[in-house]
């Protein structure tokens, strides 16, 4: 709608210029007098009006192009953000463990494989793995157990080509349960490795086929 005002002005100027031109028709002889100043003025006015119209058209076109470009950029940024979020979601997907165990369960190997592919596709990405335990074991031993669970996932990834310095590990033992109920279901949920992006997660590419 920003176009409408310059357009109206331009049209108005054009009509005025035309009227001026009409009014400038030479009078019939015998006394032909030419008001050359008026003619110059009207030509100048017409020229100004023409330039104004051309300028406004150019401005309108530039504005339209700019907006289109912004839309395209926003669309692509949204796409990148969506992809980053999707990939980040896969990076953060937890794995779980059996009671008092730290070995990677077969079903969780695929989860770790996805993370490996993502880290290979995103060279700047580094992560932190934090191991957790359920409340049943000894409080202090659980810190060591959580540490072992984090190390197990790291070892799996390092053995498959991820540089060790891209994965740091930590443990919270049983101190941060996801579910504080004392049920088998809660315990199973709480025996886990959590994965967090430590650096390089602003923009993440999905590996081919994911």
């Amino acid at each position: 709608m920003r176009l409408s005002i310059p357009l109206t002005l331009t049209l108005g100027a054009f009509v005025l210029a035309a009227a001026a031109a009409c009014g400038g028709q030479p009078a019939p002889p015998p006394t032909p007098t030419v008001d050359s100043a008026a003619i110059r003025d009207s030509i100048a006015r017409a020229e100004a009006a023409r330039r104004a119209r051309e300028d406004s058209i150019a401005r309108a076109r530039a504005e339209a192009e700019r907006m289109a470009m912004e839309r395209r950029r926003a669309d692509s940024l949204a796409a990148i953000t969506r992809e980053t979020e999707r990939v980040r979601g896969m990076v953060m997907e937890m794995i779980n463990f059996d009671f008092d165990k730290s070995n990677i369960r077969p079903g969780d190997a695929a989860t770790l494989d996805r993370k490996i592919a993502i880290m290979q596709a995103n060279a700047g990405l580094s992560i932190t793995i934090t191991g957790h335990a359920d409340e049943r074991g000894s409080d202090e031993y659980n810190l060591a157990l959580g540490n072992r669970r984090a190390l197990a996932a790291k070892e799996y990834m390092v053995n498959r080509g991820i540089a060790a310095n891209r994965v740091t590990t930590a443990s919270r033992g049983e101190e941060q349960p996801l579910d504080s109920m004392s049920t088998e279901e809660a315990w199973a949920k709480n025996r886990r490795d959590e994965f967090a992006v430590a650096a390089g997660g602003q923009q993440l590419k999905a590996p081919a086929g994911m």
Partner: peptide, 25 residues
Amino acid sequence: GLNYTPAFAPDGNTLAFSRSDESGT
């Protein structure tokens, strides 16, 4: 690393503790 289970020696000067890090606990 993670440093926990502190224990003072009877002399009150030596502290023993557990540490969990990348090399284990």
